[in-house]
Design a protein around this nucleic acid. Sequence first.
DNA 1: GATCGCTAAATTGCGTGCAATCGATCGAGC
DNA 2: GCTCGATCGATTGCACGCAATTTAGCGATC
Lengths: 219, 219
Amino acid sequence: MRAVDRAYSLIREGILAGRHEPGERLGEAELAELTETSRTPIREALRQLEMEGLVEVLPHRGARVAEWTAADLEEIYDLRAMLEAFAAERAASRIEPKDIDRMAELCEFMERAARPGATQDLDRVAELNAEFHGLVRAAAASTRLVTMLNAVVQLPLVVRTFQRYSPADLARSCAHHRDLVAALRAGDALWAQSVMRSHVLAAKAVLLRSVDPSETRNS
Amino acid sequence: MRAVDRAYSLIREGILAGRHEPGERLGEAELAELTETSRTPIREALRQLEMEGLVEVLPHRGARVAEWTAADLEEIYDLRAMLEAFAAERAASRIEPKDIDRMAELCEFMERAARPGATQDLDRVAELNAEFHGLVRAAAASTRLVTMLNAVVQLPLVVRTFQRYSPADLARSCAHHRDLVAALRAGDALWAQSVMRSHVLAAKAVLLRSVDPSETRNS
DNA sequence: GATCGCTAAATTGCGTGCAATCGATCGAGC
DNA sequence: GCTCGATCGATTGCACGCAATTTAGCGATC
């Protein structure tokens, strides 16, 4: 594996996991030591991350982890609603039955992991959710669409979004997933698109409800 | 100005202007000589272009100009229709009167430059068209949206798309622009969105009509 | 006491050299 | 004659070093 790719993944993971806070300075030398490479691959990785919108690099001043205001979040979720809806629309006419079956299975697992109590496991919910949405995107069969969605979904705030869900939110989210499976099984593009849009906009509401407008930095 | 930026712009321009054909190999040494720098900034520029989808770099095998199949073009135009419609929707409630006035002015200039005859100037039409759409995007006030649109609009095929327009196509395009100005002036988001979607989908039809399905490589 | 200018340390920008990897050409074996 | 394998050339991947730029700290002046 190339050093650029390792550096890219590591920095990216570090940001998504919250190991690097928004606004934090990312020195090249520091990152080079962290990834056990030289500054050259670091610089290339930072360019990629800049294009993805995860970091911001200013000439002669280095890279910082990008920050998001409440307005950014709204904008991002609206974009995401549109893009995911589009993905679902395309998926409706392309997805294979076995993938729909897998999605239905994921629904069950998620419902189990989301159930309140000692066995609740939100990290697992997030993981299953990622696979669920990943299947839709894969079925949409659009490289560019996937790239765009990643730019809008792979944010620290979004990755750990389930921490903010109430039991009712979780139940509703699972219900949406069931709806989507039904829409896809019916091959109904309009239905699938609508369900997905509702699903994402509901998530937006949850997030905006729980984010203090003044603090958009942490978590 | 930094060497990376110069290299980035130069390579990008070269691709958009058709100076580098799709599929063409882009050697680092060659580009370094062309831009009068060393390979280091070239490599960084290529990463950025890769993230933008303009080039494709394979490990240990270098960079090539990306190629697009007819299916890619359909996908790209559908994406663009959605994104531009979204931009128009947002712009409707944000754009300033003076920008709408400028757009109206651009309509006139375009109609003049598009009129068949000795004075027809399609390059100028393209230029004015870019400013027109640029104003809508700017008014949408969404950095990410602009980034995404660039990934989907800045393609060799799209940049020189007016070469394919018949006089009737050009007239229709201008009419759409007038419609959009009216929708924006009315502050009607749904109207603006619909007009823009129609506009882009019409462009898609023109392009797909004129592209031989077998040759997707040149121009 | 505050502001401006200067100096120095730290950091980025980029050129260069060398090792690693890939592809092509040539040769051997079937 | 064709396929498979090895060597060589070319190119990419990466580390390092130096020049350029920024920022922080300090002192002088108003």
